[in-house]
Amino acid sequence: MIFQTAYQRAIRFAARQHQGQLIPSSALPYVVHLSNVAMEILAAEHPAGFDVALAVQLALLHDTLEDTAATPEQLATEFGPAVAAGVQALTKNDALPKAEKMADSLTRIRQQPREVWAVKLADRITNLQEPPAHWDAAKIRAYQQEAEAIRAALAGGHAYLEARLRGKIADYGAYLPE
């Protein structure tokens, strides 16, 4: 399949699934977040053999299982088993206590191809924007520390995105009160 066709199919599917959802603490449609994650993938310098088409589809679809009524079977039918498996790895397991969800997801991501790792890095890069006004210093610090845990857990997966995340983590410290 031609890359542009794969991109268009994935963004249309994601837009339909996330219809009516907004980026938290924003008036922007959720698809803006998804396209920003895809942009991080598209703008990155990739290692040899990196499947950009797979990574972009994962970027656009990464929250469909977590935040919509989409099913793994739908993803497999529409986009194939690699996309479905990658999105499943990127999806937090709601049956687990909150404190265990990220570690579990990172374990599953590490069992996937490096394109899945790259999407998790790109997702956190995108999420390290100015925090919502209602977050206190402890929440901001915890989010920054979780970002560092993601970077460390996925070290060696994608050098460019790891370096970009490292910079975003450092910059995020500016939101902490002195």
Rank of each mutant, 00 (worst) to 15 (best):
F3S: 14
Q8G: 00
A15L: 04
Q17Y: 01
Q19H: 11
Q21S: 09
L22N: 05
I23P: 03
I23D: 04
A27Y: 05
L28K: 08
P29T: 00
H33I: 10
L34M: 15
N36A: 14
V37A: 06
V37N: 05
I41N: 06
A43W: 07
A44P: 02
E45G: 07
H46F: 01
A48F: 10
G49A: 07
A53F: 06
A55C: 03
V56A: 13
H62Q: 13
T64K: 00
T64C: 12
Q74G: 04
Q74I: 01
A76E: 15
E78T: 02
F79Q: 08
P81V: 15
V87Y: 08
A89N: 09
N93R: 15
A95E: 14
L96R: 06
L96A: 06
A103I: 01
L106A: 07
T107G: 09
I109C: 15
Q111S: 15
R114Y: 15
E115M: 10
E115T: 11
E115C: 11
V116Q: 07
D123M: 05
R124M: 15
I125A: 06
T126M: 03
T126A: 05
L128V: 01
P132I: 02
H134L: 08
K139L: 03
Y143G: 02
Q145N: 09
A147I: 08
A152H: 03
H158Q: 10
A159T: 03
Y160V: 07
E162A: 01
I169A: 01
A174N: 02
A174G: 08
A174H: 05
P177R: 09
P177A: 10
